[in-house]
Each structure stands twice: as C-alpha cells, then as structure tokens.
C-alpha cells in the first residue's frame, strides 16, 4: 500500500475538495432559491433576467465558464484566486440547475395551501417562508441531493486551474512516479465515492427530518 506521506497528500487534496464543494454548495443553494423565486415573480423583467442567467449557465459548459472566469476575467482587471474562481463558477452553475428544482417544487405545492394562508391573512413573505417553502423543500431534497453529487464531481475541474484538490494531488503524485498510476486513480475514485455516499446520507437524513409528519398518505391525500 501507499506510504503515509502519499496518503497525507491525498487527504489534503480531499480536504480541499470538501471545502470547494461545501462553499460552492452554499452559494449554489442561495442562488437556486433566489433564482427559483425570481422565476416565479410576477414582474416580467425579473423573470426574463432570471431566464437569461439560467439559460446562459446551463447553455455553456462548466469548464468553459471556469476558464473564462479564471483566464479571461483578469484581462478586465478582476483576478480571482483559484479557490474563489472555482467556488464562484461552480456555485453559479449549480444555481442555474437548482433554479428549476426550486421553482418546480414550489409550483407543486397545492394551491389550497396558499389560499388557506390568505384566509389566515398571512403576508406573502410569511406565506412563502412558513407555509410553501417548508413543504416544497421536502420535494426538492432528492433532486437537490443529485445536484450536490454533480457539484462534487464538477469540483474536480478546479484541479485544472491549479487548485490542489484531490484530483490535482493525484496528478502530481502520478507525475512524480511516487505510486502506481492504477493505484492512485483507484484510491481517488474511492475517496470521491465515499464523499458522494456521505452526501447521499446527509440528504436522506434531511428528508427524514423535513418530511416528518408527512409520511402517511403524502401526495395521495389532500390536507
């Protein structure tokens, strides 16, 4: 098996991968919610601007976006560190996909819920915050979990802009000839897989937590 210092390098890389993923997930989640709500706005200009954002980031490729932000943006005098460039790109990218998830889930909450809230004279903000969003969140979680896994996978792209994440470390060790290539890549894939399983576990737990009380007859009965 590998020597300790090789493991050390791989685990350092894994830690960077975790950081990039978590930070981008935070940004991506916020953007998903904002963009999802913007997509439901009654103001046409807001919906339109939002659609431009969504189509732009879904229409181009994450790696191209990353390269643009890291290599082209400095020509405009804006130089981002590799970490920041990675987090910003991946977050923006995730937000453009999460937007649809949020919007779809909110629209799937039965109309009667909004009506009951109006009958209680609840403000539109509180309506979203306490009534609609908590219910939509349960629907959102499974596709949101998928987005997180896609984000984790996409985080490997930051190795291409010199951030020393797990993929980067593997490449370094491979070039150094410190270990067998097959072994290095296998370990890296297993580490990514473990992280992905961790995400899946967290999302499942969140589903259980948010869905408590909803389990019986969910979707089948109207309440």
């Amino acid at each position: 098996m590998l020597e300790w210092n090789l493991w050390r390098a791989l685990l350092d890389g894994t830690w960077i991968t975790v950081q990039v993923t978590v930070l981008a997930a935070l940004l991506g989640t916020i953007l998903s919610i904002l963009s999802g709500l913007a997509g439901l706005s009654s103001v046409r200009a807001v919906r339109w601007a939002n659609q431009v954002y969504v189509d732009f980031f879904r229409g181009t490729s994450a790696i191209v976006q990353l390269f643009w932000i890291f290599f082209a943006l400095p020509f405009f005098g804006i130089s981002l560190s590799p970490l920041l460039a990675g987090v910003v790109t991946l977050g923006l990218n995730m937000g453009s996909y999460g937007s649809e998830v949020v919007r779809g889930a909110i629209r799937a909450v039965p109309r009667g819920q909004t009506e009951a809230a109006i009958a209680l004279n609840v403000t539109s903000f509180d309506r979203m915050r306490y009534i609609i969003f908590p219910q939509a969140a349960v629907t959102m979680l499974p596709p949101y979990g998928n987005l997180l896994i896609e984000l984790l996978k996409a985080s490997a792209l930051v190795s291409l802009i010199t951030l020393s994440d797990l993929t980067f470390q593997v490449q370094i060790l491979r070039v150094n000839g410190s270990a067998s290539t097959t072994q290095l890549f296998t370990i890296a894939l297993v580490l990514y897989f473990l992280l992905a399983m961790g995400i899946t576990g967290l999302v499942r737990a969140a589903e259980g937590y948010l869905g408590r009380g909803l389990e019986i007859g969910r979707g089948a009965r109207r309440s």
């Binding site: 896994i149 996978k153 990514y192």
Partner: peptide, 11 residues
C-alpha cells in the same frame, strides 16, 4: 455515476 468524469478520463 458518483465519481468525476475528469478523473475517469485521466485514469
């Protein structure tokens, strides 16, 4: 499906 295409590609 849950591991990066980039790493698979390099591999």
């Amino acid at each position: 499906r849950s591991t990066p295409l980039l790493v698979q590609l390099f591999m």
